[in-house]
Amino acid sequence: MTLTETPPDRELEAGFEATIARNDRIEPRDWMPEGYRRTLVRQIAQHAHSEIIGMQPEGSWITRAPSLRRKAILLAKVQDEAGHGLYLYSAAETLGVSRLELTELLIAGKQKYSSIFNYPTLSYADVGTIGWLVDGAAICNQVPLCRTSYGPYGRAMIRVCKEESFHQRQGYELLATMMRGTDEQRAMVQESVDRFWWPALMMFGPPDDASPNTAQSMAWGIKRHTNDELRQKFVDMSVPQAEALGVTLPDPELRWNEERGHHDFGQPDWEEFMEGVKGNGPCNAQRMAHRRRAHEDGAWVREAATAYARKQVSA
């Protein structure tokens, strides 16, 4: 067998582009442009961090769940989020980064996670609202990612999406149960929705006119819809769900636009959003400290397991 000469970058790039144009997937050992690789690492790693940090707001309610049924459900949901993080770290790792290094970058605050998890969870209704709206928004983002151009990422998303549907339904069912309860419970649901509606809209990121690089991500098949398209889809989905639930979405500008065939709605407070991204959200410091502590407190377990494994080999 003769070894083929290493083709020049232009030929490799043409091969990469042809694969994308055919709607085929790029796989880990394929040649890919450095920019594509870097964008993917950032996106996948920070998506993973969001799943991991995302366990905290709801996790704090596990010991105070109102019934054994709710506790089992919440435990399963939070465990799923850990799983999502791990699927994603696994995908990021195929791009040539170390999983441990990604954790280091997270706890050093150099890589980010979704700002939605910097809001506090003040009542058990928040568990329901997070499932309905936050996981609902995540579904809007993640379903198109099942067809993303990077193979391992798309496959991880398929697993994630199968599980998200449970997350959203358990949340909605929790809220529906409370809405059938007392006036006080109904007020708790409304208060919770009032707090989470705008942060949920922020999950889709700043408006398209503030996102000059979207076009590149879309050309690479990493991104399938713009931030504004996804946000519109989420609003259109949520309005009838809110009606069925009997809650009011806290946006005076929200109304059906017959001409567009979509709902018009107001803009969230982007300044508040950017503060969260910079690390000044209500719970940033707490979330980071908790994650750092978990990593550091776990060090002796990792060391002990390593020592045990070494002993087994030499025995």
């Binding site: 690492v41 950032r42 920070q46 799943e51 993303t148 999950m203 889709f204 996102s211 000059p212 690089n213």
Partner: peptide, 19 residues
């Protein structure tokens, strides 16, 4: 710039170290 494709919310895709 932040992209919605952070899954559970938008994440910045520029000026972030990749490791």
């Amino acid at each position: 710039e932040l992209s919605a494709e952070g899954g559970h919310g938008a994440v910045p895709l520029k000026d972030v170290p990749t490791g």
